[in-house]
Design a protein around this nucleic acid. Structure first.
Lengths: 110, 110
DNA sequence: TTGACATATGCCTATATAGGAATATTATTC
DNA sequence: GAATAATATTCCTATATAGGCATATGTCAA
């Protein structure tokens, strides 16, 4: 079996770096496709394809305005990812605390 | 071109749901492979392969103990993912605030 | 050393890509 | 309606999977 499809969930969709770039670019304001193309220096068809994936998993919203399509990041869809990573927070804090402890112990020894 | 390799970075590594399960399982305490196999009900070779990917991107650490291999989640490696998702936090808060506003406006109207 | 246990690796297959180029679709303006 | 602009889709290819299964490697115990 191959990997799960990029459109199967947000985790798979954001694995592609360009798509993360797009999400960051579209988070503050909606933008037409051409803006994204110009900002990121990617071929237009490539951008359209990435937007399709992002839209399919709900990471971006679209609005038509004349012949332009205005895309915008749906930040709420990123929240579950944030929550998942957050479940590890106390553990890396533990790690950092232990590192700090050791450093201070070494400090006292020398 | 195919997708970037699962071992190219943490984003690609955690796209696989089973690997996220493994990370959650190994976060509190180290565990031998057989424990993971039993806990998740996956075939042993499958678990070993997932662990290999996770180890290659630094998401787990290993320690040998006799004939067992004790794996443990390296929580610090998840932090960058947390930080990336965090950059969107203020935007979903905006979204929620706007939804709340509208709800209250409708409340006053009725 | 032989066996048993624990884990890792190899081989196989079907499949979903990302990128590139060309072209199709949709909307606007003259 | 024809030309133009903005975006989407299609066709192509090479490639890295995940899963299943068999087997290799490594470690201990008797």
């Amino acid at each position: 079996m191959p990997r799960a499809s990029t459109t199967s969930d947000a985790f798979n969709a954001i694995a592609e770096p360009r798509r993360r770039d797009i999400l960051s670019l579209l988070v503050a304001h909606e933008r037409p496709v051409n803006d994204i193309v110009a900002s990121l220096g990617l071929p237009q068809p490539s951008v359209s394809k990435h937007l399709r994936v992002l839209h399919e998993v709900g990471l971006v919203d679209v609005r038509r305005g004349g012949r332009q399509m205005f895309y915008r990041t749906n930040a709420a869809a990123i929240r579950p990812l944030h929550e998942w990573t957050r479940t590890f927070e106390r553990y890396w804090q533990h790690q950092l605390a232990r590192i700090k402890e050791r450093a201070e112990a070494n400090e006292r020894k020398s």
